[in-house]
Design a protein around this nucleic acid. Sequence first.
DNA 1: CTGAAAGCGCTAACAG
DNA 2: CTGTTAGCGCTTTCAG
Lengths: 346, 346
Amino acid sequence: MHSRGASAHVYPIKRFHMKKPSATIRDVAALSGVSVATVSKYINGTKRFTEPVEAKLKAAIEQLGYQSNPLARSMVTKQTRTIGLTILDISNPHFTNVVKGANRVALRHDYTLLLVDVEETQARERPLVEALARRVDGLILSSRLPEEESQWLLDLDKPVVLLRRSDKLPIPSVGIDNRLATFMLTRHLLDLGHRNFAYLGFGQARINDERIAGVRDCLAEAGLELDVHDAHAPTTRAGEHACSRVMLGPRRPQAVICYNDLIALGFIKAATALGINVPRDVAVTGIDNVPYGEISAPSLTSVDTQSETMGEIAMQKLIDALSGKEEIEHVTIEPCLIVRESTHAA
Amino acid sequence: MHSRGASAHVYPIKRFHMKKPSATIRDVAALSGVSVATVSKYINGTKRFTEPVEAKLKAAIEQLGYQSNPLARSMVTKQTRTIGLTILDISNPHFTNVVKGANRVALRHDYTLLLVDVEETQARERPLVEALARRVDGLILSSRLPEEESQWLLDLDKPVVLLRRSDKLPIPSVGIDNRLATFMLTRHLLDLGHRNFAYLGFGQARINDERIAGVRDCLAEAGLELDVHDAHAPTTRAGEHACSRVMLGPRRPQAVICYNDLIALGFIKAATALGINVPRDVAVTGIDNVPYGEISAPSLTSVDTQSETMGEIAMQKLIDALSGKEEIEHVTIEPCLIVRESTHAA
DNA sequence: CTGAAAGCGCTAACAG
DNA sequence: CTGTTAGCGCTTTCAG
């Protein structure tokens, strides 16, 4: 796999990673003529010391290039200042933004992120999370497992925050109101005068059902039916593939509500290729408000899920939990309709 | 920041994280009537034992729900099975793909990724990397620091792989041939008959100069000049902003070569809004071949930098280094021209 | 073929 | 106000 389109120069320089045994707290203590406890306290700022002592310590640390070993520290303090984050697919801009938000508040609180993209490892999800849990102080999980099968999360004995609203488990969660999101989109499309609706979903995601329900609820008020299709993946490619099936089938819709922006963008691309104009011939909507929906042509009507904020909130919740606040809270992020060019009056 | 557009239900259930002190190797030893050494060896598969002993061990481990503590293990083995990865901006699909590739081979070798998005912390880059280095076995770095100021990387005493070709330092690196990439784009545009060229770059990135050089070299052969502009950021937004400056200035170009796809996509969006048709009025190219360039309208001519492969190679290099191979190699990924709709004959 | 013991580098009581 | 000491949970010689 490494040669495909890649050439390489090999420099036969053998560089020995010299085993400079990286000074320990003991070395510092010896050099500065104090005890290890003193050094430890100084380093952690647990205590201040007399002027001359501090000077000596600073000098010794400087001279030895001492850096404390976080592992040893963690070993005794039982905390790693690391948060585990599992994401379904880092290629999806929605999750990218979640990571960005989470990372930001983590850094601010001096935590680092252990990231796992579970896409590659669906089957082994549980063992993977369990392993991850042993190396971090807390976890933020975006999982595909149904809530009913997630009891074991409680046995992790580590604070967990779920990245999607879910109140069946006594675990904090943050997510968008999916029903409301699609409800808003549907209402918007109804207002534009559309009557034939199709939903292009992603059945494997559990929130898919909530999104369908939102559409159905809104259509029901108008006495309308919904055609449901499945894109098999939450990607642009899947959206492209599904397009002909949706548009060239028996009941051609005037409006297509997609599971997310990626599917919608792919759908629009394929529709255009088929000579179907968006939004003139068909209105298309997505969900997530990913950056590319703004610059695509036509730009994409969507619902903002505040992905970055979601990451921030999740991380903040976790850090709160880590500092003792044990309240279990289910945060619902309010969706916000973003009307752009891909939807137009019928 | 947490209340913006978010409502919450608070469940006042107080769940005590019971201090189930999570069984240690000692407990297992006691329960199964052997010594800790034996348990350790069994767990690590270092040694096999007689049938009855193994059975006892398995039972005890099962019963106690024992899971080994990776921290304690790392403490003595001096390896964490964790790789540190710093990325300039996780929002950029190029880096996203690098992460994906890296993550894939990491998982395959039973390593996990410690991810840091340095965008938020440009100034503190060095201390941040140093801190990171103490918690991982090796590092993959995408840095903005000039090579000359990166000597200190050698003092980390940990294997490092740089995410951009750079042979001034005795550190393995992997990156694209930037000169060649823009050279190819320029040649392509020349072949299409364009004569007025502009380059819309991102001056803060060091590879920017290499990319300019590639364009210049190619244009020089044709005796042509190049107008160089700067977008201030490697983002779609920056591309949008820069568009009017480039297109409505004194020398309107027929072809614009952008620093990356994001800038190019933003540029096209803004040009279209200005009533300038791409590719009829101006040809536009990007670099990276991000997924959205394929579905944008017009789709984007670009150069594939094989971001995911890049991540894979970088990780593989690092893992090789970790297992003793000390050769310092500079891998150059060959760019590959992807012609799409945004470039057209003059 | 198994076990006892010596730490890894650090923190946190508890003494002095 | 500083130092001594006892581990954290695990691996690893080295005896038995």
